[in-house]
């Protein structure tokens, strides 16, 4: 506007480089290894589903913001892209387009925009969409193409390791017998297993985690506390009865635990504020996941666990506040007591 005039604004006059678009970009970059792995595993189907989910999410958010809420479109912050990617990561790579559309509409429409858009949603939008699809389209959502077998869209479908485990246990087999039919742990780690698009490879997801930690986008608290809890709990049950419960490593490397711990549970909006709160949150998700996996009727429980703990976030926040400066000054109290004594002692 006016040339040569100085700008005046309240302090501070410098700002961190880590702004919302930067963070969103960072998260997207962190998800790319996992995406590449699923492309390697499932071929074009993965690309197709991911692109469709992103497209639907962005378009729906734009439409809702512009025409329903009548405010500037909020798609440029990149959060809709992440929701789309996460939704795609949570579904099989051969999902028909109309189901993806429904999932995206639920994720963005009900999960996010109905609460007022970015920052106001109590539940992780991608998980809301995913769980809606899981309950509405159980057959489509649980026929996963077999890993490594397909570069075409209509491949052979099969169950996930967790599904095989659950079915085997129902049929009365013991865990060691079932384990014989499974791929090796190295295969699990690198993602050569059946399952949803992005949850395949623990290795790829850990790469993403490293990147996000390096960029200081997230802290270690949620993933570590969640994984440690799962490791500990499944370990205890495994030690109690190895014929009924699978070993902890199997649990960690299969299903959506890695994806959930790194990308889903760490969502800023739906996780607690303080590091202490994050630890409580992670432990809660871990416990619920293990309980659902071991004793529930679903083979996998990460999505439900995260959604349930999302609901507890406000409560966790109010119990895990940062200690206020000066509030816990034990030293100060001790000092004052000493001082009072001194004052009394002096005549």
């Amino acid at each position: 506007m006016s040339e040569g005039l100085l700008t005046v604004s309240p302090s501070p006059h410098i700002h961190t480089d880590l702004t919302v678009p930067q963070i969103m970009r960072g998260v997207i970059i962190a998800m790319i290894p996992a995406l590449l792995f699923s492309v390697y595993n499932f071929g074009l189907g993965a690309v197709y589903v991911t692109l469709l989910a992103i497209l639907f999410c962005v378009v729906i958010e734009y439409a809702i913001a512009r025409y329903l809420l009548k405010r500037p479109a909020s798609i440029y912050d990149g959060s809709a892209i992440i929701t789309g990617m996460l939704l795609a990561f949570n579904v099989p790579s051969n999902l028909p387009w109309h189901i993806i559309l429904i999932g995206s509409a639920v994720a963005i429409g009900i999960g996010k925009m109905s609460f007022g858009g970015l920052g106001n949603n109590p539940f992780n939008p991608a998980l809301v969409g995913r769980v809606f699809l899981l309950l509405s389209f159980p057959v489509e959502m649980t026929s996963w193409p077999t890993a490594g077998a397909t570069w075409s869209l209509d491949g052979v479908t099969g169950a996930t390791p967790l599904g095989i485990l659950k079915d085997g246990l129902r049929a009365g087999d013991s865990v060691p017998d079932i384990m014989n039919q499974m791929p090796s742990y190295t295969d699990f780690f690198f993602g050569l297993q059946g399952g949803s698009l992005g949850e395949m490879s623990a290795f790829a997801i850990l790469l993403g985690l490293m990147y996000m930690l390096y960029r200081k986008i997230i802290t270690w608290h949620i993933p570590v506390s969640m994984l440690a809890t799962i490791l500990l709990m499944t370990g205890i049950f495994w030690l109690l009865d190895p014929t009924r419960f699978a070993n902890p490593l199997f649990h960690l490397l299969t299903g959506g635990i890695m994806l959930g711990a790194v990308f889903m549970a760490t969502d800023y909006v739906t996780s607690p504020f303080t590091h202490r709160g994050m630890l409580v949150f992670g432990v809660g998700i871990g416990v619920l996941t293990v309980v659902i996996r071991l004793f529930g009727s679903y083979p996998e429980g990460v999505s439900f666990a995260i959604l349930i703990m999302n609901a507890f976030v406000p409560l966790i926040n109010s119990y895990t506040k940062q200690p206020r400066y000066g509030s816990k000054s034990q030293r100060h109290k001790a000092y004052q007591e000493k001082l009072e004594k001194e004052v009394k002692a002096t005549p």
């Binding site: 702004t19 919302v20 909020s74 858009g117 504020f273 506040k321 940062q322 206020r324 400066y325 509030s327």
Partner: peptide
């Protein structure tokens, strides 16, 4: 180019301000 503030987004509830506050406020 560094004098003006950038675009404001919704609060994403990241908790960074709480972690940063030297007085332990919210």
């Amino acid at each position: 180019d560094e004098a003006s503030r950038s675009e404001v987004y919704n609060c994403v509830h990241c908790g960074k301000c709480i972690e940063a506050c030297p007085m332990g406020l919210e």
